[in-house]
């Protein structure tokens, strides 16, 4: 089966590079699945999981991304994220703490505050990380 090259880059360096059969992810406008030969496209990503289907196996690589961009070319997909972690690199303890902190803040703040929005995003990121590790 045809494959497509994928790289995930963050400001702290490249996180993932491999050839895969399919990339599926959550863009701001909804779920997106990219197969080899896709037309060139750019889309902003939501906080979510990127699933990468490896060729010849049933297994998927999971990467937690916190916003950023998806750039698609016929032979290559690049994900530019401000933060991205592979499942095995995620610090579960830290994500759990972040989740509790965010929940606490959301209880303390009123909905219209900017801090509420911030806490909400932090909560989403924490939950996203936990989802990827399968601890949630």
């Amino acid at each position: 089966m045809k494959t497509i090259e994928v790289s995930v880059v963050t400001p702290d360096g490249p996180v993932y590079e491999s050839d895969v059969e399919m990339v599926s992810t959550k863009a701001q406008s909804g779920e997106l699945g990219i197969l080899p030969g896709h037309i060139p496209m750019v889309a902003p990503l939501a906080i979510g999981v990127v699933r990468l289907k490896k060729s010849g196996s049933k297994e998927q690589d999971l990467i937690a991304v916190s916003g950023g961009f998806l750039e698609v070319r016929p032979d290559k997909v690049t994900i530019l994220a401000q933060a991205a972690e592979k499942a095995e690199d995620i610090d579960v303890e830290r994500a759990l703490r972040a989740k509790e902190r965010a929940e606490q803040r959301m209880r303390d703040q009123r909905v219209e505050d900017i801090d509420f929005r911030r806490a909400e995003l932090a909560l989403q990121r924490a939950i996203n990380r936990l989802t990827v590790t399968g601890k949630q």
Binding site: P11, Q28, I39, M41, V42, A43, P44, F69, E71
Partner: peptide
């Protein structure tokens, strides 16, 4: 140049992309 499809639209992408680009330059 590569010509891209934009999802949802070029304007909305620029709204997110340009600040991020400027921030990256500073970083």
């Amino acid at each position: 140049l590569t010509s891209y499809e934009f999802e949802p639209s070029a304007e909305e992408i620029l709204d997110v992309l340009l600040p991020q680009y400027a921030e990256s330059l500073i970083y």
